[in-house]
């Protein structure tokens, strides 16, 4: 069908009925979950926000010299110090008596590993900053090396599957518990498969005075080895299997969860991704690892009480993203 030539696209783009803090033309790969998450975060946070960004895919693909995809004040310094920069900006704004909010952000490498110390310091000092971690579960920008966020049994270039190991030997670091252990007012997880929930959590965190943390699960088609069209499907399955629990923690305690109405077997999630392909080989170790991952999912469900109640929750894994005619969700 022909595109409507009567509507000038550039003009239409400026008139979109949502805040555009993150624009087109960025160099993210096809189907990038992180790009989508970043757009949803800026959209929900609105214009009166400054951003500190750790080194990583997001920083690289949005700011190819001399262009920027950001329509908001945005700063990048190092891999390790996004939280420290955010804390500094917050202190400066506070000294000036300004109410502008600060969001610091990084990938899983910049959050779980390299920027972890700065993050812990920011949380401990009680800075009024929202820290958003876009978790694609490896160092994708530098060539898919394992991070402490890479899930157990996943293949990366530094955790190959072979005679010795079935992918990564270690477990995914439980970052949200560690962060929540700083006794901060609000820490939550979210997924790009549930954008309405993600937006709500950004607004909720920004309304809270004090350090807040949002951990967003963002599939990476290139690093995980899946078709670019499957990003949302895979993110949704991570939640529906229980491998990525969607929860909210206040002062370290569980304050809310997205119940799983129909738990899917982990194999539904794993078999769509090449990084788990070795688990479907005819190999006794593969079968054991599949069972191991299933047990990890079941453990999450038990630990956070993700089983449905007697009545279906309209905001559970099946209902949270129901669409309506006219776009009202």
């Amino acid at each position: 069908m022909s595109q409507d030539k009567d509507i000038p696209l550039a003009e239409l783009r400026r008139a979109q009925p949502r805040f555009s803090g993150f624009e087109a033309g960025h160099r993210a790969c096809l189907g990038c979950g992180e790009a989508l998450a970043a757009r949803l975060v800026t959209e929900s946070a609105g214009p009166d926000v400054v951003y500190a960004n750790a080194t990583g895919c997001l920083e690289v693909f949005t700011t190819a010299w001399p262009e920027s995809a950001w329509r908001v004040p945005w700063m990048h310094s190092l891999f390790a110090n996004a939280a420290a920069i955010g804390a500094g900006m917050e202190a400066a704004l506070k000294a000036q008596g300004r109410s502008t909010r600060v969001i610091a952000m990084g990938g899983d490498g910049g959050t779980f590993d390299i920027g972890f110390q700065a993050l812990s310091g920011m949380l401990e000092r009680g800075h009024n900053v929202l820290y958003v971690c876009y978790d694609n579960e490896a160092y994708m920008n530098t060539g898919i090396q394992r991070s402490s966020s890479t899930p157990h049994a996943a293949v990366t270039t530094t955790s190959p599957a072979g005679r010795e190991r079935m992918g990564k030997r270690h477990l995914k670091k439980d970052i949200v518990s560690i962060v929540a252990a700083h006794h901060i007012p609000y820490a939550a997880t979210a997924s790009v498969a549930y954008p309405a929930d993600l937006r709500k959590k950004v607004r909720r965190a920004l309304a809270i005075d004090g350090p807040t943390f949002l951990h967003v699960h963002t599939p990476c088609p290139l690093g995980w080895g899946h078709d670019s069209a499957l990003t949302i499907e895979i993110a949704r399955l991570a939640v529906q299997t229980g491998l990525f629990p969607v929860i909210e923690l206040e002062r370290g305690g569980v304050a809310g969860v997205m119940p799983i109405r129909e738990q899917r077997p982990v194999s539904d999630y794993l078999r769509l991704q090449n990084r788990f392909r070795h688990l479907f080989a005819d190999d006794v170790r593969a079968r054991e690892e599949l069972e191991h991952l299933q047990a990890l999912a079941d453990h999450n469900i038990e630990r956070y009480g993700l089983r449905p109640g007697h009545e279906a929750d309209p905001l559970d894994t099946e209902g949270a993203d129901t669409v309506k005619r006219g776009g009202v969700r």
Binding site: E23, A24, L36, R39, I232, V323, K324, R325, G327
Partner: peptide
């Protein structure tokens, strides 16, 4: 049905 899904989910703001 104008549900906004494509508009909401496009990573490339396209």
């Amino acid at each position: 049905m104008a549900c906004d899904n494509c508009w909401t989910l496009c990573p490339d703001v396209a």
